[in-house]
Design a protein around this nucleic acid. Structure first.
Lengths: 399, 399
DNA sequence: CCGTCTATGTCCAACTAGTGAACTCTAAGC
DNA sequence: GCTTAGAGTTCACTAGTTGGACATAGACGG
């Protein structure tokens, strides 16, 4: 690591500046890079040559009809990143390149009762299969992003209490997967990754402050503050599910009463419908029935929306984000749930905080988390690992 | 403004690095600067000379007993900044220098019904008086930080609905004061400034994520996220006072029911004691009585604490700060109010979010806001205006 | 079909700024 | 009084950005 404040650090920063600009736009000519980065054309010329030699960037000799600009884009095979998302009933893996393109993606059901070891085995297999399917070289894998449905202690990397995957408590998922795949693995919880995914590819594009609310087995929020995921000093920011809505409400698994979860999470909501709609109902089922017009399901979903809206109103008063993106199974209900949320927010949030707020469904559905994991892997590479050209040499991966 | 990525921007960054290091430590020798900033001794030598010539820094030829290190400190008279705080019953002004030293400070009562014009007149007079009292040259005033007890629209700079100073709604305080004093004025609401003050000088030192809760006529919070005041895209973050605690609670001035304010703010709490303790009770009075053992006041304060604790618990679940600092009149009650807050937080916040949380009283009392205003003025100068040595020449102030 | 125009990308000399090494200086320690 | 060691300065060197000159090649008008 060079000393900060030196010229070489400036150069490095300028390299990153260029890479970021290219990534953001997909592809740019050198002149455009110069304009967007503010660097001079000469510097850009040098930097592009350096990047090209390093293999991080590709220059397609002549672009479309234009004058004769050579368009610069991130080279697809300079390195690939992998996103892994453990959900509460599924495992999902995506493979992407540095150009933010998803090369392959697949999901498979995962037994809720699976042990952690089984889960990691399955993940390893699926990753291997997808890499082979895309035909890229395994040595090109630069990093893995991993999503788990529970709180991660950032210091130790251990998974805290997660009633969703009970067998996993106390494991260190990143270590575990790192051991199997031999590449750096970065872990975060599913709500944060969902937020990241929607921010990069989905309903959160262009917004710097947003909250991604994931309603599934539990209720969690991923907070994006000034363009960055905010985890809080202890790593547990975003626990919107355990905001107290009613001090004398139902007892929650966290030990308190009347948490938002007890009004909105699948595990508390589904039982309400079991006497009338049978016992093996899932949240997806409820949503489907509601869309088909089932009044009971509609009512339940509206009530859930109202409660979520109360929680979101609190969140808006405190953080005043410009957008709230709803994810998880429930988001499929569309206006059936968004309407009541907006209504509730309008009622309980102070007007100035709610005024410019937009409440949108996630654009990525169940893919938000894997894609977020991809984005995590990309961003944790620091945008600089990929610059020094030593990528394939420095990280002896697989064999 | 130079282009980013140029060498001169690097140089500027290094200048700031040095100034920051010196400010943080109060005074350093060049060798120490080199060690803490990571710059080489030669570079530090150049930079110090440049800063000394520019007048931002002072070099005291020989320090105490040491070998023969020349200690470098921010020069006190390179420029001064002013903090102005309009409270709901007072006006407070502080004068400080670039070394973060407070040179003079004074407060005087301000009639609640005063018109905005009257208020600004008074502020101008007090500022003038204090500048004269300190004996510094008026041309040295580099900027003013201004605190107002209500939401400020960051775009337009207008003061939103404030039931605290009714005559002020729609005014543009920064413009107003700028017109009178002829210097750049930066405005923010009192809770944010209190947070800034406590962060720089008070109970928040060394913490990067904290919430400053100000309980006075209303209840507001100033959020510090990763070392920076967070205002939210709309500028209204931190409105903890209007979190809903009880959907069927008392009607709040904001139009909702059961807001935290209706359980904690002076305007709602004092009436509870008027039948037993007389009608001209103030919050300070209640606190004093409680400290003296009055059971009614103790009970009221404890109840307020419990409710604040509920709000803080929500805040912790969402943001997971490492510290909560209590400000405003109520903070004087010490453990009488902090105990119930902690208890309530422990009960309603999820354990992992509350574990490393410390709840402390503000260390600055009623001065937090003015000092925060000073800090705002300093920081809005960008810590770089003060570097280019053109300070006194560039801003023709007063006469 | 050809000359001119214009925007792109490259090259080079100039300049800015940080760094290591050598050097000077001064108080402390013996 | 001599030595020593850390502090600060000077200087030559190097890294890296920049403006301007230059080559290039499509677009446009005739």
């Amino acid at each position: 690591m060079e000393t900060p404040g030196s010229q070489s650090s400036l150069h490095r920063a300028n390299l990153e500046r260029v890479v970021r600009a290219v990534r953001l736009a997909g592809s740019l000519t050198q002149a455009e890079i110069a304009r967007t980065t503010g660097l001079s054309a000469a510097t850009v010329s040098n930097i592009v040559r350096e990047l090209k030699d390093g293999g991080t960037v590709e220059v397609t000799p002549t672009s479309a009809g234009g004058r004769r600009a050579r368009s610069v884009s991130l080279s697809g095979d300079a390195g690939i990143v992998i996103g892994v998302d453990f959900g509460h009933t599924h495992l999902r893996v995506a493979v992407g390149n540095l150009a933010h393109q998803v090369l392959a993606e697949e999901s498979e059901p995962l037994d809720v009762d699976a042990s952690a070891a089984q889960g990691f085995d399955r993940a390893e297999q699926l990753v291997t299969r997808l890499i082979e399917a895309t035909g890229v070289d395994r040595t090109k894998v630069a990093g893995v992003g991993l999503g788990v449905p529970g709180p991660i202690d950032l210091e130790s990397g251990t998974l805290g209490s997660s009633a969703i995957l009970p067998g996993w408590i106390g494991t260190r998922p990143a270590e575990e997967l790192r051991g199997r795949l031999g590449v750096p693995v970065h872990v975060d919880n599913d709500a944060n990754l969902g937020a990241l995914g929607e921010m990069v590819w989905g309903s959160g594009r262009g917004v710097r402050d947003l909250a991604y609310i994931k309603v599934a087995s539990g209720v969690g929020a991923g907070l994006v503050i000034e363009g960055k995921i905010y985890r809080g000093p202890g790593g547990t920011a975003g626990e919107i599910g355990h905001i107290t809505l009613d001090e004398s409400g139902p007892v929650c698994r966290c030990g308190n009463r009347g948490c938002l979860e007890t009004f909105a999470a699948a595990r508390y909501v589904l039982p309400l419908l079991q006497s009338s709609h049978g016992t093996d109902l899932t949240m997806e089922g409820v949503v489907r029935l509601a869309r088909d017009g089932d009044p009971g399901c509609r009512r339940v979903i509206a009530d859930v929306g109202r409660h979520i809206g109360s929680g979101v109103a609190n969140l808006c008063n405190l953080l005043n984000p410009s957008r709230v993106v709803l994810g998880g199974d429930l988001a499929e209900a569309g206006e059936l749930v968004l309407g009541p949320i907006r209504e509730s927010v309008g009622r309980y949030a102070i007007p100035s905080a709610a005024r410019q707020l937009s409440v949108l469904p996630g654009a990525l559905g169940g893919r938000a988390e894997v894609l977020g994991a991809l984005a995590l892997a990309l961003s944790e590479m620091g945008d600089s690992t990929l610059l020094d050209g030593t990528l394939s040499a420095a990280t002896p991966v697989f064999t």
